[in-house]
Design a protein around this nucleic acid. Sequence first.
DNA 1: GTCTATATGGAGATAGAC
DNA 2: GTCTATCTCCATATAGAC
Lengths: 195, 195
Amino acid sequence: MYSERMSTSERLIESTRELLWERGYVGTSPKAILERSGAGQGSMYHHFKGKPDLALAAIRRTAEELGATAEAVLTGPGTPYDRITAYLTRERDVLRGCPVGRLTMDPDIVANDELRAPVDETLDRIRELIAAIVEEGKEQGQFAPSLDGAEIAATVLATVQGGYVLARASGSPAAFDAGVRGLLSLLEPRGTPHP
Amino acid sequence: MYSERMSTSERLIESTRELLWERGYVGTSPKAILERSGAGQGSMYHHFKGKPDLALAAIRRTAEELGATAEAVLTGPGTPYDRITAYLTRERDVLRGCPVGRLTMDPDIVANDELRAPVDETLDRIRELIAAIVEEGKEQGQFAPSLDGAEIAATVLATVQGGYVLARASGSPAAFDAGVRGLLSLLEPRGTPHP
DNA sequence: GTCTATATGGAGATAGAC
DNA sequence: GTCTATCTCCATATAGAC
């Protein structure tokens, strides 16, 4: 399943990341991880204390990766509106859902502070980035002064996370795209930047 | 657990609804359902063909109930903006998440058209109600003519569904509320209705 | 309709040999 | 580090008595 070059430990983590994305924590069994990674029972319990320990390594990596991707897009070129547009319209495998956000629907993740922490921190990090961008847009006169950066950031992030829900419910990415377009139409900059 | 008056079949459905909300489909076992409902193994398989069959009955009921609740709020009194505000700010047990939306993160639900159908139909029904309200608001001059009813409806629904994700990630309803306030600030009506 | 018995396989892990 | 054996529950039923 993976390059011969990848260590057993790496293969275990990568397989777990995939399965957590596809099936969530509750739906992912050690057995499935072993089959996908090609590792044996003994290897898994040698490298990790158990399912929660392995899941934690996988979740941390996925969270870090998503945070970095979002940050790259949000700190790219363009006006505040451009950067938010870039974030909202970046390429996504919509029907797969968000590998981080989906974990919040997993009871065992939400019940475990250690497992939930990377999820919380990542969404929070993205929210702060967007909030700062909105504030910047307000200073430049691109956004109405009445808007609250932190609130709009929550709206943007929620639209994305909820877009996945609508898309998966209907079996089509169309609803995700519609939600994003609706939000962008509401955010549309007013007139020209201040002189 | 339930009134003596409730039939065994009813108790099974109600227990299943609760468990699906708390733990999702994958995380809900027949055994847990039996324990919560107080029914025996034999009763369950007498009334239902198996876990998917019982889950279907539970999901249909939850979906119908949520659709009716949303419809009641959205067809209430007030201007289009008022009614969307009412929908967005209606009382919710935010940290429990949406009993319908959460099912979209369940791989076995999304993979089964019959189980997914009530979820899809319910979200679609709400979306259409909101879309019509937005169009009504446009006619009344409360919303900009440039807005697209169907798109804004997707944004509104996504903000709610995504709000649950943010709230559960952080363990606090604050993010849900922030997202809703952000969206309402963007939707804020312009000036007075046309003459 | 409900109960108890029985069954197969999976979940999640430990033990100890190699 | 990895492998195989073994273990205890649980998941998800079916069978047949009452």
